[in-house]
Design a protein around this nucleic acid. Structure first.
Length: 469
RNA sequence: UCCCCGAUAGCUCAAUGGUAGAGCACCCGGCUGUUAACCGGGUUGUUGUAGGUUCGAGUCCUACUCGGGGAGCCA
């Protein structure tokens, strides 16, 4: 059996005006409506688009009574027929069936969890293997795909090199979060050192290994040879975070640019986000219209506005002033030197500016050691892009390229130099100003689709206490 | 991890401490070029788990499990 040709997918057939053409439709039945006039309407969906294709099954079909009349939601079919202009409202074309083959029935129809009516997202998570058959999750999958394509498109158009950073790493760098250990030692009786600790020297890698929390440091090494690079891969955080915007396993895009400062970093981030939003609107218009209708009626308007508007740029110190003058009472006090809390970020993006914003130049005490120190010696050249509802979607910085300053910062942060020997080598051999950022892919999908929970924009979400499927 | 809320039919939800119900799904019948069709009939339950209070618990109490919202951490 050949795979389904692109011109035989439902999406192509619905756009076709090639009336009279012989076609074969393969997909899953969404619903069946019978007409006493001697035929049935079968809605077939194959995931190529939101819409289903209407098939007319006449009673003259040899298996009309035995098969067609038993079709219910979820059955898989292969239908040969003729493409026709539809005489009724609701669809441009339909297929008059010449033969209908049922490939797979639904066992125990009463127990099939997918129904024509809406389901709650909470329930769909319990049947994550079947939820791509729903309109919402199918649309999310298509938008996610369009965005993944657009990520590569954006960077490739600009001459960036795609870098595959390692998933397993032995550098427990930068304290971006708790890490998942990777080990082949027997958890019941691991080898011990004389001091009684687990002896990772006997482990697979000869030392303690983990799943990566970021490909940034590796990306820096390649940027300092190939100039402009980006990573796009899975990252892992073992934090016990239970929110609608955190996952233990998520995908991150991390560009890194040599000969680049914070201003260049910000420019790229803004252009990148606009490119992604535009791609979703242009390549998935039906799916986006669906989200705009059922999930968030302001969605498309907001995205179009962002594409055409400038992002607000506010230094951290200015942001603190705005918050102090806001007259709002916050649960957490606004104070220079303290990190911005969710409520502060929400006020700034949702109430004050009402659009995405970039906060830069944070106090060095709340940011990572590798961020470049500003001349005031109090702040660093960091930037966070904040968007309404989601909060931080991008975190980035110009990196500290000066060896002496970097070593001083590491000492301030209580970090040993030895494990970072290769990272320090970059400053030792041909160092250059460079900058980069990390974009959370799922948070971007959330923002683009309006989906409330991050668990519904990734096929199989991994969260604390939950890794079913 | 902390605070709050919830768990009843396959799904979405009702039910003063006193006989567990409706809509949808599914099955049967009717009707119609139908559009998550419509009309009539029918099947469906260890009320999340384990204890406790009570003549009597879906309902009150305790613990646990799972889910949701918010917070922290971050992308």
């Amino acid at each position: 059996m050949l795979s389904v040709p692109a011109d035989q997918r439902v999406k192509s057939l619905l756009a076709s005006t090639d009336y009279g053409k012989a076609v074969t439709v393969r997909g899953w039945v969404r619903t069946r409506r019978d007409s006493k006039g001697g035929f049935s309407f079968i809605e077939v969906n194959d995931g190529s688009c939101m819409a289903s294709l209407q098939v007319i099954a006449e009673a003259a079909l040899p298996n009309y009574e035995s098969d067609v009349k038993r079709l219910i939601t979820g059955c898989s079919v292969a239908i040969e027929g003729e493409l026709r202009k539809s005489p009724a409202e609701g669809q441009p074309v339909e297929v008059l069936a010449k033969s209908i083959t049922v490939l797979g029935w639904v066992d125990d129809p009463a127990a099939y969890p997918m129904q024509k009516k809406r389901h709650t997202m909470e329930f769909l998570r319990e049947v994550a293997h079947l939820r791509p058959r729903t309109n919402t999750i199918g649309a999310v999958a298509r938008v996610r795909n369009a965005l993944a394509w657009a990520v590569h498109e954006f960077f490739q158009q600009r001459g960036f090199l795609c870098l595959h950073a390692p998933i397993i790493t032995c550098s427990d760098c930068e304290g971006a979060g708790q890490m998942f250990g990777v080990s082949t030692l027997d958890p019941d009786k691991p080898p011990r050192t004389p001091e009684g600790k687990i002896d990772f020297a006997q482990d697979f890698f000869g030392r303690r290994a983990s799943l990566t929390v970021s490909g940034q440091l590796e990306a820096e090494t390649y940027a300092l040879a190939l100039t402009n690079v980006y990573t796009f891969g899975p990252t892992f955080r073992a934090e016990n975070s239970n929110t609608a915007r955190h996952l233990a396993e998520f995908w991150m895009i991390e560009p890194e640019m040599a000969f680049c400062d914070l201003a260049g970093d910000m420019d790229l981030a803004v252009a990148f986000l606009k490119h992604l939003f535009r791609a979703a609107l242009e390549r998935c218009p039906e799916d986006m219209a669906f989200f705009n209708k059922w999930i968030d009626p302001t969605l498309i308007g907001t995205l179009e506005h962002i594409i055409n508007a400038d992002f607000e740029h506010v230094p951290y110190t200015k942001a603190v002033e705005i918050l102090e003058k806001s007259g709002k009472t916050f649960e957490y006090q606004v104070k220079w030197g303290a990190d911005l809390q969710s409520e502060h970020e929400r006020y700034l993006t949702e109430e004050y500016f009402k659009k995405p914003m970039i906060v830069t130049d944070y106090p060095k005490t709340i940011k990572a050691f590798y961020m470049r120190a500003n001349d005031d010696d109090k702040t660093v050249a960091a930037m966070d892009v904040l968007v309404p509802k989601i909060g931080e979607i991008i975190g980035g910085a110009q990196r500290e390229e000066r060896m002496d300053v970097l070593k001083r910062r590491m000492a301030e942060c209580g970090l040993e130099e030895k494990p970072y020997w290769w990272y320090l080598d970059l400053r030792r051999y041909g160092t250059v100003p460079h900058a980069g950022f990390g974009l959370g892919f799922e948070r971007t999908i959330q923002f683009v689709t309006g989906m409330a929970n991050i668990r519904d924009v990734i096929p199989y979400p991994r969260t604390p206490g939950s890794a079913e499927f």
